[in-house]
Structure formats: C-alpha cells, structure tokens
Amino acid sequence: MGWRIVHIKNGDYLRLRLDNIEITKLSQKVFIPLSDIIMIVMEGNKTSISTKLLSALSKNNIGLVICDDKFLPSGLFLPYGQYHHVSKRVIAQSEWSKSQKDLLWQAIIKQKMVNQLSFARYLGVDQDRIDMMDHLISKLTIGDKTNREGHVAKVYFDSLFGNSFTRDDDILINYAMNFGYSIIRSEIARIIVGNGLVTMLGVFHRNEFNSFNLADDLMEPFRPLMDYWINTLLDEKDTYLSYKIRLKIIDFIDQTIILNGKTVTMDDAMQKFVQSFIVAIDSEDPDLLVKIELNNFIGD
C-alpha cells in the first residue's frame, strides 16, 4: 500500500521508468517507486507528464491533483474501472433509497458537527457558544431536514474568526482551508473510485454540475481535523500561502489518528471510513460507520 504524497513544483518532465516515476528537473533525475505513492500534487506552469505515466497512475490507483496559479487544486485525474466488481457496486449505488441516504447523512454530518464542537472547546470558545452548538447537534434529525449542520457551522466559524468572517473573505486562513479541504477531497475521491463507487452520486450533495458529490459527502468529518491541523501550522507572521505552508498542509494525510484503539495514518483512516460507509449504507445501519474523532487526532 502506498503512503507517500509527491509534490511537484515546476518539475521539467515526469515519465514512467520501469515501475518508477522519473522526475527530471534542471538535468537532475529523481526516481520514486509507484508502489510508494498515493497521490501526486502538481503546481506551476512548466511541468510535462507522459501519457504512459498517466496510464500507470490510473492502473495503480494514484490520484493526480493539478493546482492553478494561486496554488489551489483545480483538477483531479482518477483511475477508471480498476475495482474488480465495479459494475455491481455502481448499480447498487444507483439504487440507494432516500431513506438509506438520509440515515447515513445524519451519521456522517453528526461526526463533523461533533468534531467542530471539539475544536471549539480546544480553542476555549465561550461556553454560551459551546452550549449553543451542543444544543443544535442534539436536535439533528434523519437527513438533517432542519439544516442543523448549517447552523452549527455558522456558530463555529463566527466563534473561531469573528462574526464578520465569511468563507469568501480574501484572507490567508481561507486560502489555507480551501487548499486543505481540496487535498482531503482529492484523497477521498481516489479512495471512492478505488472501492468501485462513482464520485458523482452522493447521499446529500446532488449538484448536477459537481462530479464529486459523494466525495463532498464523505469528507465532512475530516474538515474540522484539517481546521485543527492548519491552526497548528499558521502563526501571526504568516501573510500568504507559502510553499512551506502548502507542504505542511499536504502532510495532513500522513498524520496519525486513533481508530478503534489502533494508531493509523489519516489516509488509512479515510480508507476505513469509506469502506465502513459502504457496509453501513448497504446494511442500513449507521452504527457500522467508523468514528472519526478530533479528540483522537495525534498529529506531530
């Protein structure tokens, strides 16, 4: 199983050499075994990649993320049809009932909300706001028809960054979160495809213009963990999303978390979460969903 995320910054040329990626930059060559890699993040405007390498990435279920001029992920290359029973699994996915999806969405979004509450507590947010979030979570219903998730998010972000804060603000913390969330989304999408599902068919997200509805569903519990991770990285001296900060944010995938009493990498936790989701929704039993808990996030 791979474990490494490769970050390419203006590499000259990437190609396949035997079972390795050959990276050529300034006439120097670096070789990385494909078996070590789970994802490649490419940025800059001076990198070329061979079609033979793209084919090898697909066969080895290695995600390729392309970043724009602002260093934010803007494209994702995923494998196609590598799961051995992909048709069977996609047919089952297309037949998930509304009640199945609503039941699992309640369980998924509750994990996110509880993790937001834990992070707010960690930061010492005022008790009245903690109590408000706790009360909103207690009113969560199947399918979250009353949008408790949205209300908790409002209290959460206001508590962390002030009442005037919005996720559209042109500030470093938003750039960092956008970058971090995109890394999570890309990794979850890679795992979804590797398990024979399609990313377009979600349980809650169902935007016809979104190719990653299911990834947007299943990444939710991990968002507050990324918020916590970014909080450990940034300080008052940081004014922009530097190369150093981007590398540290990407390293989130290699951090460790306790899952069912065992210490695993975040990538492994995502694998187990997606696999448990498949079992839980097919069984219509949300208790089978693996618990992703901020309080069990170890990090460096």
Rank of each mutant, 00 (worst) to 15 (best):
K237L: 11
I5H: 00
G2E: 00
F273Y: 15
K46Y: 13
L197W: 02
G194M: 06
V152P: 03
L103Q: 12
N147V: 06
S94C: 14
V193E: 09
D216M: 02
L259G: 05
V30W: 03
L34W: 08
I183Q: 06
C67H: 13
D102F: 11
K272G: 02
V114I: 09
P79V: 01
Y156N: 02
Q255S: 12
L104S: 07
A107S: 15
G75C: 12
M226S: 02
S55K: 15
S35M: 05
D268H: 04
M226Q: 02
A92Q: 14
K98T: 14
P73L: 12
I38G: 01
G81W: 06
R148E: 04
I173Q: 13
L201N: 10
H84F: 15
L214P: 04
L247S: 14
L214C: 07
I281K: 02
P224K: 02
K46G: 12
K244I: 08
T265P: 06
I192E: 06
L72N: 14
I91Q: 12
I192M: 05
D158Y: 00
T199H: 10
L289W: 07
N61W: 09
L54S: 05
E22C: 11
N210D: 14
L233Y: 10
E236C: 05
V41C: 13
R121M: 05
E95C: 09
L103A: 11
S97K: 12
D102N: 15
N195Q: 12
S87R: 15
L289Q: 09
T166W: 12
T166N: 10
D251I: 00
S74H: 13
Q93A: 11
T51R: 11
D227T: 04
G44T: 03
N163P: 01
I230M: 03
S99W: 03
S87K: 15
I249C: 00
I49W: 09
D144L: 10
A120M: 07
I245V: 05
V114C: 01
I230F: 07
S35W: 02
T199Y: 09
I230Q: 01
I137P: 03
V155M: 00
K110D: 00
F222W: 05
F273H: 15
D238W: 11
S55F: 08
L78F: 07
